[in-house]
Design a protein around this nucleic acid. Structure first.
Lengths: 207, 207
DNA sequence: TAGATTGTTAATCGATTAACAATC
DNA sequence: TAGATTGTTAATCGATTAACAATC
């Protein structure tokens, strides 16, 4: 088995519950404990750990601090990752104002918008004109961008981002972005999520 | 094969591109066309269609209007679904203000918050106290809720929602919610998405 | 008719789980 | 030591793709 998106997402979630366990004063955990807390089978937990080169002690489980140290490195938590937000509309503004990522090594460092009324270089998280985007990305060596522009603008801006050096995009526009192989794109499509819920709740009622 | 989340999500996406094709004046499509536009294999498209009981014409492809009519029904677009937002913080407010779902039969009809400062029953999308949540849900027969409260409050409110009759939850809190079998939960975890991008972009650089 | 596309079956692929030897 | 848990291999499960008969 090779490292896939799902594996990394599970790793994120393992880390989350391990931090909580540590907070509660625990020192070690078993694959079973972590599995229960994350809704994953214990076999899956062990397999994931071994996939990422994380070892435990037979009979002794896993030491939480050791796990967290390893995960820290794997998930790049040993450095702060600057992230920019393109499109300061409803969603974009929400993400810029959200403070929850800071302590997790993810810093939203700037927003960009085409609308002059949105621009505010003096704000805590400054918002600049899209014209300045490329220079900013190159200058600060930003690698990851959150794309929250209207659908019609998304593909063009995606090209510009890639051109400027962005290699990871969290896309909120409801389209499949075209980008080179080396660019990683995760799309969050809220309408699809809601339609999914509507479908399954409708089905449920029929039963 | 049975209908799974992925299948329904693909159906949503097929519908999206079909609307665009129709807009462009097309009358019929082939599994290949739809596949190309959505990044899915043509075999998958045909399989999905047949799974949802949608038939085409051998040699003649699929009629777009027929497809859209069928999908309309399957995805519950023949009625408006009222959705409420619990927690009017950054994300919650963004969703309440977002107007994009309206024409898709998804209406955000109210917000709820525990903070009196957030309450505003006169707004276009009114925001009420959480105390009124249960009565509202029962009264308006709301089935779907978007949960955008802080992590620590999420599980308790989830229980309350289910108790009031909610059967579908779009969860933005970074935890695995516990709920009865019949309740459908989709979780959007932005931190996990970003950590995912960080991991894969880091890997890419090593190569 | 000839050619192209659907609809479905069988083959493949990948991910998850079961099982158990290794071992602390 | 005896018992419990890891780490890994084999088995299973489910989803995707290939292939092709049916047919418009």
């Amino acid at each position: 088995m090779v490292v896939c998106k799902k594996c990394v997402s599970r790793l994120s979630r393992y880390r989350k519950v391990l931090l909580r366990f540590k907070d509660l004063g625990f020192v070690k955990v078993f694959s079973d404990t972590v599995g229960d807390a994350t809704g994953v089978s214990s076999a899956q937990v062990r397999k994931d750990f071994s996939l990422f080169g994380i070892a435990g002690n037979k009979r002794g489980g896993y030491n939480i601090d050791t796990l967290l140290d390893k995960m820290q490195i794997i998930l790049g938590k040993d450095q702060v990752h600057g992230v920019i937000v393109i499109g300061v509309g409803n969603i974009g503004r929400a993400l810029i104002q959200y403070k929850g990522f800071e302590k997790e090594g993810i810093a939203i460092v700037a927003g960009f918008d085409i609308n002059p009324a949105k621009i505010n270089p003096k704000a805590q998280v400054p918002v600049f004109s899209i014209k300045n985007m490329k220079a900013f990305i190159k200058n600060k060596q930003i690698e990851i961008a959150i794309l929250s522009v209207p659908e019609r603008a998304a593909q063009e801006i995606c090209h510009k981002l890639v051109d400027a050096g962005i290699v990871g995009i969290l896309n909120f526009a409801p389209i499949r972005l075209q980008a080179p192989e080396h660019v990683e794109i995760n799309t969050v499509n809220l309408q699809v999520e809601l339609e999914n819920l509507i479908y399954f709740t409708k089905i449920m009622k029929k039963k």
